[in-house]
Nucleic acid binder design. Structure first.
Lengths: 240, 240
DNA sequence: ATAGAAGTGGAGGACTCTCCTCCACTTGCC
DNA sequence: GGCAAGTGGAGGAGAGTCCTCCACTTCTAT
């Protein structure tokens, strides 16, 4: 019972370097392609073999998990920042916009936040963490009369999902079109509005639309059949 | 060169019956589970063997194609109806709502309209068909002053994608929540609005949210690598 | 300098999942 | 009653994922 798991021995110098390489590669690959990227992809990006990656991280989930600690930090920071804005409505707009920007910039984070395929626990934790902040933001903005009274903190995730959709749609043609739709949405949740807010982006023209539709990733909503859960290594519990 | 492909000989009585059974089963299965359902599923639902299904339809795409002729009819009909409404804004609201309802009721149709995985040509055709109708609807609604002036017909698909997201999210917990978000969106595209429209549905409560997030299908945006295109049967065109 | 612990690469195993084929057998029709 | 047409469903082909395994290389402590 001495040093139960403490000081698990430092990695060899080269190994530590590689660990950092893996993290960096994973950040990049996941941000760019989302969690559908494989550890093989990460390894290639890092200039290492898959085996090395698996030696350091027992499985994909562990790597994702290690990585998104920092992503979550960004989300929380955005929420905190918005609460400091004396104009609560502006803060609200800012918050949603920043969250959308984070998603737009990092597909991996989007996958984590919107899909729960990985890091279920961690996401729950994040939600617990920002829920009160969202509630406060909403309450303030309503009290100041900027946000429609029937809006709820629980609506924010839905908003983000909607925006995620437009982000993805425009990605290859006009990476910023989503701001157009975010603006419409925000106009929709403002308390009163004599004139529509100026849309920051033009609509997709025929060519863009055509290309977007064509290059549009085939969206799959994999229905939860037969609890795929984790798939897990083939180690059966009966192996004992 | 006589009767080139005309009157391709009627099916045997039982075969014709089975063909209808297949169509009915496909309608049901695809509407319920989307295009990710396999022809095996369709066959099972029809109480037939897969072989039978493949004897009648050369591949999945052919079946999907045969089926969605009618789905497209519904879409066009909705568009026509909305154009008849003397109140152009009401017509617009109606149009978007009906399109959303169609998607909500038929996941297969949604997949076709939003993903182009199947029936690329047919979808293009549909788009050509409704595009002018949308343009007219938009133009009318703007002229009458109901719709914000910077809205474009090309924005409608984006709106529908956003709604599709919320439809899917609420599906198992509160199949109608999407109307809440559609209402916000519509408020966002109206020209002026002193008071927000009453939201037709309450937000998801904590339990709903938790369950929705948990049962939430793992959303996959399969990035178009290596042109999956069609995969197609292995019949090469060189077979001629 | 060197033993041997630690680390590495990447082919390939195990698994899953989908679309579709094949062919022995059954059924309807002239 | 004969035979073309139709049927069922096991299983082949192919794609793709996660991860293991182990011969080999590299570091580091003595």
């Amino acid at each position: 019972m001495d040093t139960p798991a403490a000081v698990p021995r430092p990695l060899r110098r080269d190994a530590e370097l590689n660990r950092l390489r893996i993290m960096a590669a994973a950040r990049e690959v996941f941000a760019e392609r989302g969690l559908e990227a494989t550890l093989d992809d990460v390894a290639r990006q890092a200039g290492l073999g898959v085996g090395t990656v698996y030696r350091r991280f027992p499985n994909k989930e562990a790597l994702v998990d290690a990585l998104f600690e920092e992503g979550f930090g960004r989300v929380v920071a955005a929420a905190e920042r918005s609460l400091e804005n004396p104009d609560a409505w502006a803060g609200m707009v800012n918050l949603v916009t920043e969250l959308a920007e984070i998603q737009a910039a990092d597909r991996g984070l989007r996958d984590i936040m919107l899909s729960e395929a990985y890091g279920r626990d961690r996401v729950a934790q994040l939600r617990d963490r920002i829920k009160p902040m969202l509630e406060q933001a909403v309450e303030r903005a309503q009290r100041q009369g900027g946000l429609r009274a029937d809006f709820r903190a629980a609506d924010v995730p839905a908003l983000l999902m909607m925006i995620a959709m437009t982000v993805e749609f425009g990605r290859d043609v006009r990476p910023e079109v989503w701001r157009r739709y975010l603006t419409m949405l925000l106009d929709g949740i403002s308390a009163r509005r004599d004139h529509p807010t100026r849309l920051p982006e033009p609509e997709l023209d025929d060519d863009d639309m055509h290309e977007a539709m064509h290059a549009w990733p085939r969206l799959r909503w994999t229905t939860p059949t037969s609890t795929p859960e984790k798939r897990g290594p083939k180690v059966l519990s009966s192996e004992v």
